[in-house]
Design a binder for these strands. Structure first.
Length: 831
DNA sequence: GCTTAGGGTTTG
């Protein structure tokens, strides 16, 4: 007889029944119920006497709703059912959700009954079944199949048993016991037999980045080894680049599923077969357990972790990992081949077989780097860098087959270039006719990535989360500021982050409730959080490992609530240029608008001056020696009539500095220029309004600006930025703060945005940050306390944060949505 | 449609 087991936490009356396998004929599902294939689920049938069976391929977190109810989302996948519609979202409510959370693990096979069917609101996003199962109320049940503990001796494996002296073979046999869970038997590399389709783990000892084969697919090749010391070649064919192994360096660990063993040239090779999957892992001991894969449905359990750990330990003992994954530019030697980890700054095609990549890694090469000039309009990315930065930039020429991949790279990408060669001397191909770069001196280093794939030659984009990229960024951050460069990095940052996307889904689930996250004692581990479904809010206890931008004034952005675009706050240099361009433009025919009284006023030269006493009269200044410039002013006759001359001033022909000075004497200053015979606003890259120290900007896309006399009824509140923006047809941009935080706990790291709730997080308004240094300083203090400069991980406080996971632009993003108040000065994780 | 690659003594 099967035994019903009540697990800890699943109290009496639990609706999740855990049934041990091997103790009876199977699930204790009522006999009158019959199983329905998941693919046949639809709303127009009666499922009261039916069951579904599937593997829990995803298990969301238990979410507490404001009503006191609980909810948990999970995904069931029917075994051996062909896609589509083999996987279905299941939502459990109330006590059932709590019991399920306690008793069921990802990978378990469950049977559900007593469900109702609804339309899945997420079908377009998750591409799962168009319907979902809803389990609530007294009739809902979940039955779980679980291998008994302790496990019985392993049955004969499907393939020849790996050597008994390897621990992992036992572990994998144990996994295969869970007959209802996805069952994979892993074979050692000395257990390959021609014709078998196998699953295996291995340490990469050689690899080529994916390259276009002569057939229809893209091809990757690997050579892997394991504790048996066999070295097995392996090919992966797939038309899609993203399905290929994400191997970054020798020593990485791969898990291969469904690879066919072939005999070739007296040795075994592995080739992917239909339905294959590859996971890649960092090969370093203590490295991240996050598998690199594009698959959204991979299954990795504790045994998988153990297999990776064991291979890591073994590989470390064999010295299989090279000491460093790549060579910094500072160590590049003439004529040597090396792998380079770097960031792409700009690129330009040279000809059909050659592309120039301009890269840096934050270190300075000991040799002079070759300078390359290309026509600016062919360059993607900035064409000029400061002298200091130029000295750090390496020009990499990639040839032939690599040109295709180079075309897909974007400035800002983090790259690893494999088998790059440092070439001393000149290279005439670089000089364009007519450029002064034709005659190069000899002692310059250029870098070539030769055509072909021999020696693993190729280029790979590394994820920003990669530890090597993180290390490089630390080096880059230590490079002294140079303004043009910080601008570049920041705009790239924005592009990489994209416009912080809508947040509606996550908000509707929990942030809209009044519950403070601090009420919930549950905290999620980052590794779990990453695996759970988007659309939920999680509480985490983390340290702040790093953040961007490091120069905090760059966290200030302008945001359009209408088109949701975000842009940088233009720097003074740009704004000053717009002002001088506008003032240089000759006033066109036609006069100022009829509603305005126009004239000229001298510009105060030093101290902020009081407003001019009369319009149209040049007021002598205290320093007659240098006659002051006069600028055009236009005042609303209506306002003048009400004896409110300082309420609003339209100003033409002034410089930025002059505008700034005059702004201190008027409540509102709107810079204008003459264009086509009438008054217009300046280009909207410049502020359209100055109010004291504050400046306001308009959205270029959403504004339909024209200079009109603002309607101003007597006795009304003074004009403010909102009223003026409306009067001038300007879509007012909002100051916002945007940062990216790298959170860390014992299990993982996670990049999250701080945006929507940044102001409450810092306790300052973004508008104040724009106007005064003190507000920026308070942000600095907070960041310094969370992430002390040069501090070790142990010195950083632990913080409880709420993080919302949401889908945007095809990927899962995370955002700090509220901050609880506790920060604990502890140096170790308590688990 | 069911191949493609199968590392390698590099070179613009």
């Amino acid at each position: 007889m099967p035994r019903r087991v009540v697990l800890e936490g699943a109290g009496p009356g639990s609706r999740v029944l855990v049934v041990l396998e091997g103790a009876g004929p199977g699930f204790r599902v009522p006999a009158h119920m019959t199983r329905v294939p998941i693919s046949l689920i639809a709303t127009d049938a009666d499922f009261s006497q039916r069951t579904v069976q599937g593997t829990v391929v995803r298990k969301g977190r238990l979410v507490s709703l404001a009503s006191g109810n609980a909810l948990l989302k999970t995904v069931l996948q029917e075994e051996d059912a062909p896609p589509p519609n083999a996987s279905i979202n299941v939502v459990l409510f109330g006590a059932l959700a709590k019991d399920f959370d306690q008793a069921v693990n990802q990978g378990d096979v469950v049977v559900a009954s007593g469900f109702t069917v609804g339309r899945s609101p997420t079908v377009h996003k998750d591409k799962l079944h168009p319907f979902n199962l809803l389990l609530s109320g007294d009739d809902a049940r979940v039955y779980v199949s679980r291998p008994p503990l302790p496990p019985p001796p392993p049955p004969p494996p499907l393939v020849r048993s790996p050597p008994a002296n390897r621990k992992r073979s036992a572990a994998h046999a144990e996994v295969s016991m869970a007959t209802k869970a996805p069952k994979y038997t892993y074979v050692g590399l000395d257990g390959l037999k021609s014709g078998l389709v196998v699953n295996t783990y291995g340490v990469v000892v050689f690899f080529k980045q994916p390259f276009r084969s002569c057939g229809t697919d893209v091809c990757s090749t690997l050579k892997i080894t394991d504790q048996s010391n066999q070295r097995i070649s392996c090919s992966v064919f797939d038309a899609k680049l993203e399905n290929h192994p994400k191997v970054f360096r020798v020593g990485d660990i791969v898990r291969l599923h469904r690879f066919k063993v072939q005999f070739f040239n007296n040795s075994m090779t592995l080739v992917n077969t239909f339905g294959f999957s590859v996971l890649a892992f960092d090969g370093a001991e203590g490295g991240s357990m996050e598998p690199r894969t594009s698959s959204r449905s991979f299954h990795l359990d504790q045994e998988g972790h153990r297999a990776v750990e064991e291979l890591r330990t073994w590989a470390a003992g064999q010295a299989l990992l090279p000491p460093a994954p790549s060579t910094p530019l500072s160590a590049a030697q003439p004529r040597a081949y090396f792998d380079l980890t770097c960031q792409l700054l700009a690129k330009a095609p040279i000809d059909s077989t050659c592309t120039l990549l301009r890269v840096w890694d934050g270190t300075r090469c000991a040799h002079t780097l070759l300078k390359v000039t290309v026509e600016p309009d062919t360059t993607e990315g900035p064409t000029r860098f400061s002298e200091g930065r130029e000295r750090l930039i390496a020009n990499v020429l990639v040839y032939d087959n690599h040109v295709e991949l180079a075309a897909r790279l974007k400035p800002g990408d983090f790259l690893r270039i494999y088998n790059l060669r440092a070439i001393p001397g000149s290279s005439k191909v670089l000089g364009r006719p007519g450029s002064q770069q034709q005659d190069q001196e000899v002692d310059h280093l250029a870098f070539h990535l030769h055509g072909g794939t021999a020696y693993g030659r190729g280029v790979r984009v590394l994820p920003e989360s990669s530890p090597d990229v993180q290390e490089m960024k630390r080096v880059m951050e230590a490079v002294p500021d140079e303004d043009d460069f910080s601008e570049l990095n920041d705009s790239q940052l924005l592009e990489v982050w994209s416009t912080p996307p809508e947040f509606a889904e996550a908000e509707s689930i929990q942030c809209s409730t009044d519950r403070s996250c601090g009420d919930d004692p549950r905290t999620a581990r980052l590794s779990d959080l990453k695996r759970s479904d988007p659309g939920l809010v999680h509480q985490v206890r983390v340290q702040l490992r790093s953040y961007e931008p490091r120069r905090l004034h760059q966290a200030l952005k302008l945001y359009c609530s209408k088109c949701m675009a975000m842009r940088d706050v233009p720097n003074d240099e740009l704004v000053a240029r717009l002002f001088s361009e506008a003032s240089a433009a000759a006033p066109g025919p036609g006069g100022p608008p009829a509603w305005a009284l126009s004239g000229r006023v001298p510009v105060p030269t030093e101290r902020p001056a009081s407003p001019p006493r009369a319009v149209g009269v040049a007021v002598p200044t205290e320093r007659p020696a240098s006659p002051p410039r006069a600028v055009g002013v236009h005042l609303s006759t209506q306002l003048l009539g009400e004896d409110r001359p300082t309420e609003l001033l339209f100003l033409s022909g002034s410089t930025l500095e002059e505008t700034r000075r005059l702004a201190s004497g008027y409540r509102n200053v709107v810079p204008v220029r003459s264009s086509g015979g009438h008054m217009t606003l300046l280009d909207l890259s410049a502020p359209f309004l100055f109010r004291g120290r504050k400046r306001y900007f308009g959205c270029k896309r959403c504004s339909e600006a024209s200079v009109r006399e603002p309607l101003y009824a007597e006795g009304e509140e003074p004009l403010d930025e909102k009223g003026l923006a409306a009067a001038l047809g300007v879509q007012l941009l909002q100051f916002v703060l945007l940062m990216k935080l790298e959170l860390q706990d014992a299990t993982d790291t996670l990049d999250v945005f701080l945006w929507r709730d940044a102001e409450s997080f810092f306790g300052v308004s973004a508008e104040d940050v724009a106007a005064n240094q003190e507000a920026e300083n308070s942000i600095r203090q907070k960041m310094d306390s969370l992430c002390p400069a040069g501090g070790s991980a142990g010195g950083r406080p632990w913080v409880d944060l709420c993080v919302a996971a949401y889908r945007a632009e095809g990927q899962t993003c995370y955002q700090v949505c509220r901050r609880s108040i506790t920060t604990n000065q502890r140096s170790k994780v308590t688990s």
